[in-house]
Amino acid sequence: MTFLSRMPSWVGHHLAAIRVVIVLTLVLGLGYPLAMTAIAQVPGLRDDAQGRTSLIGQSFLDKKGHPIPYYFQSRPSNAGTGYDASASAAGNLGPESTVDVLGPDGKQSLLTQVCARSRAVGELEHVDGSRPYCTSDGVGAVLGVFRDGGTTGKATRVVSLDQACPARPFLATYEGVTVTCAKAGEDYGAAVVTPVRGNAPAHPKVPADAVTASGSGLDPQISPAYAALQTPRVARERGMTEAAVHQLVEKYTSGRALGILGEPAVNVVQLNAALDRMHPVKGA
């Protein structure tokens, strides 16, 4: 009879557990880190692994929060105050978020955020920044319609819910009723929320990624369409030809993974760093 056969069963269980801990420690605590370090030295990955090329987005704004005109702009970010790696987060607002909370402690709906961003990008790039369901002053084109039957019947009162007084409503009348601006703190819960599409083009000049944040809030990429929209401005501000800027954009554009997954994307951080190296702005 061997020694192991004479041991109590609980001792055998403890020895088995110890062996598992030792094996996992060697594999996951030593083998895995060494393997990842080795993989990171593969040409093409080495620069990213050593931190010389950022994989986290950043804002290219001045001290007042305005876009710096000689940089390509990143997409919006909900990570902290913007691209805060310690606060990666999404806005957690969905398509039903159309009505603003007005007042000093108010909160913009997702619709108004999109409208305001589209208007600002349009002004920066000198293009039409209008979008469906947005007013010309950059908030949601949303009416609160009070009806004599509750949710049905004749309209008796109409309020432009996202245009705080003394703003001029985007519509003068709706169903024969004068539209009024909204007052902070007033309860419009009984109104039927009615978004109004307006006459904006079905395909806005400002791309979707220019007005919406990524899920992580840290993505350094923008769409080729957004990069193309910004190319004339960056070329003008840096004294370059648009063709030269376009060549750099193409250099920092990645294609679909495996040729089929995802969409082409432009790394803004790498692109702006390359512009600073090759075509620095005097006095910047």
Rank of each mutant, 00 (worst) to 15 (best):
T151D: 15
Y133R: 12
R117L: 15
A85D: 14
G57F: 13
D100S: 01
G140E: 02
R147Q: 00
D48K: 11
P69I: 04
S74G: 12
S130K: 10
Y133L: 08
T151G: 14
P104L: 03
K154H: 09
A35Q: 05
S59M: 09
C115Q: 05
V145I: 14
S54M: 09
T98K: 15
E125A: 10
D48V: 15
P69R: 05
L143H: 08
P95H: 11
V99A: 03
R119Y: 08
S118F: 10
H126K: 15
R117P: 06
G153Y: 09
S136Y: 03
D128E: 06
R52Q: 13
F146C: 01
S86M: 13
D47R: 10
G44D: 02
Y70M: 03
G153K: 00
D48S: 09
A141G: 07
A141Y: 06
P43K: 00
A87I: 07
G150C: 10
S109Y: 04
V121F: 10
T81W: 06
P95F: 11
G138P: 06
P67F: 09
G106F: 01
A79T: 10
K107F: 00
A40I: 03
S59L: 12
P95G: 14
S88V: 11
D47M: 08
A79Y: 13
D84G: 09
G31P: 04
P104Q: 00
V101R: 12
Q108S: 09
G138T: 07
G103F: 04
P104V: 04
S54K: 11
T156V: 12
Q108G: 06
G57Q: 12
Q58A: 14
G82H: 03
A89D: 15
L55P: 06
S118Q: 08
Y70E: 04
V142M: 01
D100M: 01
T156F: 10
M36K: 04
P33Y: 06
V142Y: 02
T135N: 07
G80R: 12
Y133H: 15
G91I: 08
V99G: 02
V121M: 07
G129A: 08
F72W: 04
Y32A: 06
L30T: 04
A116P: 07
C115M: 05
V121T: 07
A35C: 05
T81D: 14
M36V: 01
Q108W: 04
S86Q: 14
D48A: 13
D128R: 04
Q58L: 09
G29N: 01
A40T: 01
C134F: 08
R157D: 15
P132L: 11
T98V: 15
P95V: 11
S77D: 10
A87Q: 15
A85K: 15
G106N: 07
V145K: 01
P33W: 04
R52M: 09
A85S: 15
V139Y: 00
A141S: 13
S77V: 11
L110A: 14
R75A: 09
D100T: 08
I39V: 10
D48E: 12
S54V: 09
A89G: 10
T81M: 11
G44L: 03
S54R: 14
S88F: 13
V99Y: 03
G57E: 12
A35N: 05
C134R: 07
K107M: 05
Y71W: 05
D62C: 00
V99N: 05
Q73M: 07
L61V: 03
D47K: 13
E123I: 13
L143R: 06
E125G: 09
I68T: 02
T37A: 11
S88K: 14
V142E: 00
Y32H: 11
A90E: 11
K107L: 02
G44T: 04
G122K: 05
